[in-house]
Design a protein around this nucleic acid. Structure first.
Lengths: 146, 146
DNA sequence: ATGGGTGCAAACTGTTTGCAATCTG
DNA sequence: CAGATTGCAAACAGTTTGCACCCAT
């Protein structure tokens, strides 16, 4: 059950004056097909598209990811790695947060509605419309600290 | 009232088998002197040191920042910009969180003890020792959405 | 005096950009 | 058909690394 049908994406793009292209559709499709909690880097995504036989350039992947983050369709994650990861921006109640070990990079995901609600409140009181709310916890896991 | 006296830094380094060097001292000093909520990039820090007449290389700045994040003395922030920022990792109660406009980059800081407590609990129950806890809110500010 | 730390310059990685060609509306 | 979007290759920024020298322990 995809969040964005072809038409929904088309409408979202058109409503802001952007054009619906095959590349944008394919990128969103891949990210929609990802299981909850999976996230890809721009290069992962590009490699996947290549594997599927699509002809699409890395620059277009970057441009599309930026556009979709800007539109609020995607979340951009900064985890332990040195590059960004992207995933579909599902409704707030499904948001998960990240706990990262700064030494080994192990990442644990968890959900916590209260955080999302607090974030929502803070943003609203500052006059912001929320696109994404991420609690990042950095620490040392038990394996690394022993 | 600095968090880390010269001796405290020296002790922290020695206890983990690292050496106390003038460069490490100077970098920590600059970050300690920063007002609450200010944060610098590696290059900002390097430029500041140069201005003060210090002779220190950019690589050493990077190496030192990494070491101190790893040790838990500093926080590494990923804001709207395309490079990392660093600030002193003060005790949890002083932690602040960030609200960023994805369109204009305006950043608002706020504090919320409850978030820190939730984070602490989540981390502990996963067996992690917390170094840092940041709520990142991405959205669109009222000026950009109008 | 030993080996951790530094400075320099060169390499690297992920990302961005200019431009001509190609599509969408 | 006009202008948005793409692909390519080249540029870029921030960061990392190899190595010889230096200095803390």
């Amino acid at each position: 059950m995809p969040f964005y049908s072809e038409d929904a994406l088309k409408a979202a793009l058109h409503s802001r004056g952007y054009r619906a292209t095959a590349q944008r559709q394919k990128i969103l499709n891949i990210l929609q097909a990802l299981p909850q909690g999976e996230h890809l880097s721009a290069e992962d995504l590009h490699a996947l598209l290549k594997d599927q036989g699509e002809r699409i350039s890395l620059s277009t992947v970057y441009r599309t990811l930026h556009l979709m983050v800007y539109m609020g369709l995607l979340r951009e994650l900064e985890l332990a790695e040195d590059h960004k990861h992207y995933e579909l921006n599902r409704p707030l109640r499904d948001h998960h947060h990240h706990l990262v070990c700064v030494q080994c990079g192990q990442t644990i995901e968890f959900t916590e509605d209260l955080i999302d609600r607090i974030g929502e409140n803070q943003a609203h009181s500052a006059g912001y419309y929320v696109l994404d709310c991420q609690l990042m916890l950095y620490g040392v896991c038990d394996r690394c600290s022993s």
